[in-house]
Structures are given as C-alpha cells and as structure tokens.
C-alpha cells in the first residue's frame, strides 16, 4: 500500500512552525517511513501531485495568493490543520488589522525608516499579490479540521498529532502540549 501523503505550506507566517516540524529531530526518519511529502517547502514540490491525507497550514491569509493556496490545500487534503497562532488567529501579521491599508503601504514603500524609493511610487506589478483588507485566520476562509496552537507549536505537539491522525487515533494532546506561546 502506498504511504499516505502530507503537504505543508507557509502562508503569512515566518517559517517558524516548519522549523518546529524539523525540530522533531531523528523522528523525522520515522516520519519519512510513515508518509511521503507532497507539495511542501520541505521537498520543494511546487504543485500537488495528487490527493493528500494531511495538509499542514502555517500562517494566516494576508493576500490573495494566500487565499488561493489555502483553497488549493482544502481541495487536495482530506484533513487540514491550522498550525500555529498565525494560522489560527492571524498572529503578528494581524497587528496591521487596525491600520488602514494605505498607511501599511506607505510605511512599507514610502515612509519606513529603511525605505529607499526615489520614485515615490507604490509597486503595482501583477506579480505582486494584492493585499487583503486585513489578515484572516485560516478557518475564516476554508473549513479547518484541527488547530494546533503555539508560536510555534512544540515539535512534540506536531509529532503527537500527526502520528495520531496517521494511525486513525483521536488527537488527544496532554495539557503541556497545547499552549498559545
């Protein structure tokens, strides 16, 4: 029987949650025995090659590309997991949610202390995904099946949850593995 596939992505996140996944240390060898990685920064596969058992989402949705990728994950994954506080509540990127979009652009491209932009223009290239009006938690965009909070979630949290899901057991994490920081 073919191994189940796992896909991962980082939307509006810092890759800290992916780092935490790598932090499972030598258990990563067991993980590779358990699953194949599909679309993921771990193996640099850019597009889905087929149906996946589990999708891990790091980061919330701050632009239209994030939304597109998230919907693509929902379409390809049986179980979708929000990993980390950014996916769950927007996290640090969501601190801009109380600031008008124009002010965000001005800070990034015009007025910021390290900005060098003699043209004084805000880039408007089709290659650049459009910002959303605010940063959205993943479960406000698509249906999310599980939430693993933390900044980042400890490696043990990711490991325990993945192993439980892949062996068809209920995800019941001990008190110490579910934290918001």
């Amino acid at each position: 029987m073919a191994k189940p596939k796992v896909a991962t992505t980082s939307l509006a996140g810092c890759f800290g949650c992916h780092m935490s996944l790598l932090d499972i240390d030598d258990r990563i060898l067991k993980l590779v025995e358990l699953v194949d990685f599909d679309k993921s920064p771990v193996d640099d596969i850019k597009e889905f090659t087929g149906r996946c058992a589990v999708g891990l989402i790091e980061g919330g949705c701050c632009n239209e590309e994030n939304v597109k990728v998230l919907r693509d994950f929902r379409a390809h994954c049986d179980i979708l997991i929000s990993v980390g506080d950014c996916a769950i509540m927007g996290g640090i990127p969501a601190m801009r949610n109380g600031i008008p979009l124009q002010e965000c652009y001005a800070e990034a491209y015009l007025k910021g202390p390290t900005v060098h932009n003699p043209s004084g223009r805000i880039p408007n290239d089709p290659e650049l995904p459009l910002l959303l009006n605010r940063v959205y938690p993943c479960h406000e965009v698509v249906k999310i099946d599980y939430h693993l909070p933390g900044c980042p979630p400890p490696a043990d949290t990711l490991w325990e949850a993945l192993v439980a899901l892949l062996s068809d057991k209920p995800v019941q994490l001990p008190y110490e593995l579910v934290k918001y920081d």
């Binding site: 927007g90 109380g98 406000e140 939430h147």
Partner: peptide, 14 residues
C-alpha cells in the same frame, strides 16, 4: 487551556 480551546469558533473582531 483548562477548557480545551484550540481556536475560538467566533470570528475575530480585531
């Protein structure tokens, strides 16, 4: 933590 909340079911108001 004690009540076992992984994520709120309500939309964030920010």
């Amino acid at each position: 933590y004690r009540l076992g909340i992984a994520a709120p079911k309500y939309p964030y108001l920010f």
